[in-house]
Amino acid sequence: MKDENEAIDEAVDPSRRAFMGVAAGVTAAVVAPGVLLHAVAAAPRSEPVTADVRWGLLIDTAKCVDGCSACVAACDRENGLDMQSKPESQSPLKWDSQKAVWIRKVKLQDNQTGRVTTLPMMCQHCEHPPCVDVCPTGASFKRADGIVMVDRHLCIGCRYCMMACPYKARNFIHEAVHGQLTAVPRGKGCVESCNLCVHRRDFGEESTACVDACAAEGHHAIVFGDLKDPASPISQLLKDMPSRQIREDLSLNTGVRYSGV
């Protein structure tokens, strides 16, 4: 299914695109799909996502503040994870190991130098995601725009993707879920993880919940944007500052980059 997306990119009907362009009042943009995408960004998406963009994050650990977890709280609120409730008879410690966490704060210390770093960890949205390779049903997939996510309709809950993820980014929903948000369906027995606020992407919003929350705190440690657009703020920053991928030895070409680790 993931490959179909790519095929569709190539075969986009130009006249349909042209119509869209007219509708958006930017006829000139027809020739440049990238520009077009930004031009129609305010409305719900009506065309398949394309590989013209690749969404990603840049995390500047120098700006990430120890003790702040605004991004985590914002993610929980955005995706309805704050509505998770511990089953009554479950011990709090075990529940901590079983509840869904899409983004988490990690604090590290270098063994040699003693330098302490804090950073948020989430799905790294690899270009070559191991979770997609191992999924037996194809439920774990990479969207054309680089977002790695789970099609919960196909997920059988085998958890092989969780075994394969080098970032421990995935969660299995261990308990029945009630009161889901309309924008974020989630239910017992499937695997889930950060999807770069995919509903925000499809409705043309600018950023993700964690990015907004970090900015609201005044830290601006997380930058969201299109890695394929050389003019985007994230590409500009990546060009200027040293950054790396976590576990770059695996050559997964992650969409989430870190500076200062």
């Binding site: 948000l181 309309t182 369906p185 925000r200 409705f203 919003e205």
Partner: peptide, 19 residues
């Protein structure tokens, strides 16, 4: 409705409304 919201819940799927 194991996964999907069975009532209109939270952000309606509409950009302006979300905003």
């Amino acid at each position: 409705f194991d996964c999907h919201a069975a009532v209109p819940n939270g952000a309606r799927l509409d950009a302006t409304a979300i905003a």
